[in-house]
Amino acid sequence: MALLSEPIARLVEELSRLPGIGPKTASRLTYYLLRAPRDQARDLAEALLDMKERTILCAQCFNVDTQSPCATCSDPARDRSIICVVEEPLDLVAIERSGRYKGLYHVLHGAISPVEGVGPEDIRAKELLERLKDGTVKEVLLATNPNMEGEATAMYLARLIRPLGIRVTRLARGLPVGGDLEYADEITLARALDGRGDFE
């Protein structure tokens, strides 16, 4: 005899397929939902389906939105001469939260990682080059992660973009707010020193 009844076992199995959720967490979530009001379970199910049915990739920047072109690409107030290149849609959200960037974006949906078999053809690099052809864009800001995969991606893109006569910039690197200087590694510290500014 099965220990769990079929509907419960099914939900546990489905939840445990999600990244970061193991069988124990999946069981906990399932039993929480079992005790939760019916409305909450229905809202969750509807939100899941709604998300799958109503979201699409923007044909220009490849961000996830309910329309294409997305809200950012169709916003006339945005500066169209600069494109910020990020690895994932969540990186775009993080930059938007800073409130300091007013240009357009391009989401690569990954970073070059040769050891994992991810090459330039597996990310949206070709589509970025297509966007640069009409001459509107004057600067490409490479905001890939500050690690070896992000560096490989940035260097690869820079090699392709520079011959087009477009300025290529990279996000500055330095110390994180709230961090401890004594725990910073030498590369971060060296770059923070190189990029020091006048105290205001």
């Binding site: 070059i112 040769p114 050891v115 994992e116 078999g117 090459g119 330039p120 053809e121 490989a152 690869y156 090699r159 392709l160 011959p163």
Partner: peptide
């Protein structure tokens, strides 16, 4: 797997 990337880089201008 990483050979593919080396070949791609070698073809870059």
């Amino acid at each position: 797997r990483s050979r593919r990337f080396i070949e791609t880089v070698q073809r870059l201008p």
